[in-house]
Measured scan of single mutants.
Amino acid sequence: EVTIKANLIFANGSTQTAEFKGTFEKATSEAYAYADTSKKDNGEYTVDVADKGYTLNIKFAG
């Protein structure tokens, strides 16, 4: 089991951190699914992958 950390960075400057656990593939998939659901309210996003994929910096356009 691994933990994927997602740092969500919103257009207004606020941030949120979420953690997803499971296999690398499952946790990563859940992090992207979470970003997709947040996209409806926060606009399109880009992802900067860090820490060999264990940290995702997800920046929303607003």
Results as ranks from 00 to 15, higher is better:
residue 1 E to I: 15
residue 1 E to A: 10
residue 1 E to S: 11
residue 2 V to H: 07
residue 2 V to F: 06
residue 2 V to E: 05
residue 2 V to P: 03
residue 2 V to G: 03
residue 3 T to G: 03
residue 3 T to F: 06
residue 3 T to P: 02
residue 3 T to N: 06
residue 3 T to H: 06
residue 3 T to I: 13
residue 4 I to V: 11
residue 4 I to R: 00
residue 4 I to H: 01
residue 4 I to M: 03
residue 4 I to W: 00
residue 5 K to V: 15
residue 5 K to Q: 08
residue 5 K to T: 15
residue 7 N to L: 11
residue 7 N to G: 01
residue 7 N to T: 12
residue 7 N to V: 15
residue 8 L to Q: 01
residue 8 L to I: 11
residue 8 L to G: 00
residue 8 L to A: 02
residue 9 I to S: 07
residue 9 I to P: 00
residue 9 I to Q: 08
residue 9 I to T: 12
residue 9 I to R: 07
residue 10 F to S: 03
residue 10 F to N: 03
residue 10 F to H: 04
residue 10 F to G: 02
residue 10 F to V: 03
residue 10 F to Y: 11
residue 11 A to G: 09
residue 11 A to K: 10
residue 11 A to W: 09
residue 11 A to Q: 10
residue 11 A to Y: 07
residue 12 N to K: 04
residue 12 N to D: 15
residue 12 N to L: 04
residue 12 N to S: 08
residue 12 N to P: 03
residue 12 N to Y: 05
residue 13 G to S: 05
residue 13 G to Y: 05
residue 13 G to T: 04
residue 14 S to M: 14
residue 15 T to P: 05
residue 15 T to Q: 11
residue 15 T to D: 04
residue 16 Q to S: 11
residue 16 Q to M: 13
residue 16 Q to Y: 13
residue 16 Q to K: 12
residue 17 T to P: 04
residue 17 T to L: 09
residue 17 T to W: 09
residue 18 A to K: 15
residue 18 A to P: 03
residue 18 A to W: 10
residue 18 A to T: 11
residue 18 A to H: 14
residue 18 A to V: 15
residue 19 E to Q: 10
residue 19 E to D: 08
residue 19 E to R: 08
residue 19 E to Y: 15
residue 19 E to T: 12
residue 19 E to G: 04
residue 20 F to R: 00
residue 20 F to V: 01
residue 21 K to P: 03
residue 21 K to A: 07
residue 21 K to Y: 13
residue 21 K to V: 13
residue 21 K to C: 11
residue 22 G to D: 05
residue 22 G to Q: 02
residue 22 G to I: 01
residue 22 G to E: 03
residue 23 T to N: 08
residue 23 T to I: 07
residue 24 F to C: 08
residue 24 F to D: 02
residue 24 F to E: 04
residue 24 F to I: 09
residue 24 F to P: 05
residue 24 F to H: 06
residue 25 E to C: 11
residue 25 E to V: 09
residue 25 E to A: 11
residue 26 K to I: 12
residue 27 A to F: 02
residue 27 A to D: 00
residue 27 A to W: 01
residue 27 A to V: 04
residue 27 A to H: 00
residue 27 A to S: 04
residue 27 A to M: 02
residue 28 T to V: 13
residue 28 T to L: 15
residue 29 S to M: 14
residue 29 S to W: 11
residue 29 S to T: 11
residue 29 S to K: 15
residue 29 S to D: 10
residue 30 E to S: 08
residue 30 E to H: 07
residue 31 A to S: 03
residue 31 A to N: 01
residue 31 A to Y: 01
residue 31 A to P: 00
residue 32 Y to I: 11
residue 32 Y to E: 03
residue 32 Y to Q: 04
residue 33 A to M: 10
residue 33 A to Y: 08
residue 33 A to H: 11
residue 34 Y to G: 02
residue 34 Y to V: 05
residue 34 Y to A: 05
residue 34 Y to F: 14
residue 34 Y to H: 07
residue 35 A to D: 01
residue 35 A to M: 07
residue 35 A to H: 01
residue 35 A to L: 10
residue 36 D to H: 06
residue 36 D to M: 06
residue 36 D to P: 00
residue 36 D to V: 05
residue 36 D to G: 05
residue 36 D to Q: 08
residue 37 T to W: 14
residue 37 T to I: 14
residue 37 T to D: 14
residue 37 T to C: 15
residue 37 T to K: 15
residue 38 S to V: 15
residue 38 S to D: 04
residue 38 S to C: 15
residue 39 K to S: 14
residue 39 K to I: 12
residue 39 K to H: 05
residue 39 K to A: 14
residue 40 K to P: 12
residue 40 K to D: 10
residue 40 K to F: 10
residue 40 K to T: 10
residue 41 D to E: 14
residue 41 D to F: 13
residue 41 D to G: 10
residue 41 D to S: 11
residue 42 N to L: 08
residue 42 N to R: 08
residue 42 N to F: 15
residue 43 G to F: 04
residue 43 G to D: 05
residue 43 G to L: 04
residue 43 G to T: 04
residue 44 E to S: 12
residue 44 E to I: 08
residue 44 E to V: 09
residue 44 E to F: 09
residue 44 E to P: 14
residue 45 Y to D: 01
residue 46 T to M: 08
residue 47 V to Q: 01
residue 47 V to M: 05
residue 47 V to I: 10
residue 48 D to M: 12
residue 48 D to I: 13
residue 48 D to C: 14
residue 48 D to L: 10
residue 49 V to C: 08
residue 49 V to H: 07
residue 50 A to R: 12
residue 50 A to E: 12
residue 50 A to I: 12
residue 50 A to F: 11
residue 50 A to W: 09
residue 50 A to M: 13
residue 51 D to A: 03
residue 51 D to Q: 04
residue 51 D to R: 02
residue 51 D to L: 03
residue 51 D to P: 01
residue 52 K to R: 13
residue 52 K to L: 14
residue 52 K to N: 15
residue 52 K to I: 05
residue 52 K to V: 06
residue 52 K to Y: 14
residue 53 G to D: 03
residue 53 G to H: 02
residue 53 G to M: 03
residue 53 G to C: 04
residue 53 G to W: 02
residue 53 G to N: 03
residue 53 G to E: 04
residue 54 Y to C: 08
residue 54 Y to V: 05
residue 54 Y to M: 11
residue 54 Y to I: 05
residue 55 T to D: 03
residue 55 T to K: 04
residue 55 T to Y: 04
residue 56 L to K: 00
residue 56 L to E: 02
residue 56 L to R: 01
residue 57 N to I: 14
residue 58 I to P: 00
residue 58 I to G: 00
residue 58 I to C: 03
residue 59 K to R: 13
residue 59 K to P: 01
residue 60 F to M: 03
residue 61 A to I: 14
residue 61 A to G: 13
residue 61 A to W: 14
residue 61 A to L: 15
residue 61 A to Y: 12
residue 62 G to I: 08
residue 62 G to W: 07
residue 62 G to C: 09
residue 62 G to K: 09
